[in-house]
Design a protein around this nucleic acid. Structure first.
Lengths: 193, 193
DNA sequence: GAGGTGATGTCATCATCTGTCATAGACTCA
DNA sequence: TGAGTCTATGACAGATGATGACATCACCTC
């Protein structure tokens, strides 16, 4: 029998998300999170770099999926297709966690610093994608712009997916597949009064 | 004669940027900033909401320029042209502050939280642009994607402009004008091995 | 010149985050 | 089986970030 329960990190993450949802991010102290998880504040800071990090710590597990999907296909491939495969793979991995992601996003949306950290994470991913595209032979400028455009579209669909709490909400991957074609024509065809 | 010099806010902002550049953002305390500005830490927090804010406080003066440029032109106008006019107007306003912006960006690039706050600000601007485009009659989905793409390009050119310290560096507006046409074709024409 | 105003200082306090050392169950190896 | 090591955690002290309450005093208005 271990001296302490072995999952302090998970308990801290769960306690934090619940408390943030109940009382708001700013109103929750580290001591309260630690209390609910049955540890001390010092243990919180051993598991997570800072208070924000408890909401972002596990995100980087998803990045390798993106990069592998881009690097994997053999032979020539069109950029849009490659981007679609990568974003759909990411979407499939996020799909089962819909409810937890919705709760997390609701917390993030209430705080500028948290929104910034989320955007910084996405920017880091975007850069990694651009690098992966460049390594496949795309021009560096084209790769970075493609990654930026793809992620802009992903953010839009992710936001809509997270906002939709209904049980028969369209899967994120379907939303992304549906949205991609509009990219091809919007720039040339869009005019307004 | 006033009891204190009248420009404590400007002195604090200048002292903060200088100290951040000299010693790094994290190594500088509010007390040090306040000391150099000749006030107390309490006055710093009366002028700026928090330590980060001293780097971002005046940015929102630029947003109205963007929105006016989008709302102003009369008659039908193509989306890409409208986006170009808005981004070029913003670029022209930023041009004289090249050196200060370079110094500021160098500080921001050293800290994840600061980078996030910068991205959050740009996201707020992006949303405002999308709204302005929608009010001109563009479909809401198209407007948000157009804004996202325009800003992705703006970020890329801004980054290159800020990285270029040479005295005859190309103006930001020229860089943006030069980069825009590539947007039109990249999605359809880009293929790699 | 009496009183109000506003920017600032002073003091107290809470929250975030870090460094350091102690503790005790788990593990290893002879 | 017992000594030594490892490791997650607790306990405590302290620096920094941030806020609230109240005092101060030059300036302004009447």
């Amino acid at each position: 029998m271990p001296r302490w329960p072995a999952d302090s990190r998970e308990r801290l993450a769960t306690a934090a998300l619940d408390l943030f949802s109940e009382h708001g991010y700013g109103a929750v102290t580290i001591d309260q999170i630690a209390d609910r998880a049955g540890v001390t504040a010092r243990t919180f800071f051993r598991q997570f770099q800072d208070k924000e990090e408890v909401l972002f710590a596990d995100d980087d597990l998803l990045l390798p999926i993106l990069l592998e999907t881009i690097a994997e296909p053999r032979g020539p491939i069109e950029a849009g297709t490659l981007m679609e495969q990568a974003l759909v793979a990411l979407a499939d991995r996020m799909q089962p966690a819909h409810e937890a992601l919705r709760q997390r996003q609701a917390v993030i949306d209430t705080d500028v610093a948290l929104s910034g950290r989320e955007l910084a994470k996405q920017a880091r991913w975007e850069g990694a994608i651009a690098t992966a595209l460049a390594e496949r032979g795309f021009r560096a400028d084209d790769a970075s712009l493609l990654a930026a455009i793809g992620f802009a579209l992903f953010r839009r669909e992710l936001h809509a997916w997270l906002a939709d709490a209904s049980p028969d909400a369209a899967p994120l991957a379907d939303r992304i597949r549906a949205a991609l074609p509009s990219l091809r024509t919007i720039l040339d065809a869009t005019t307004a009064s």
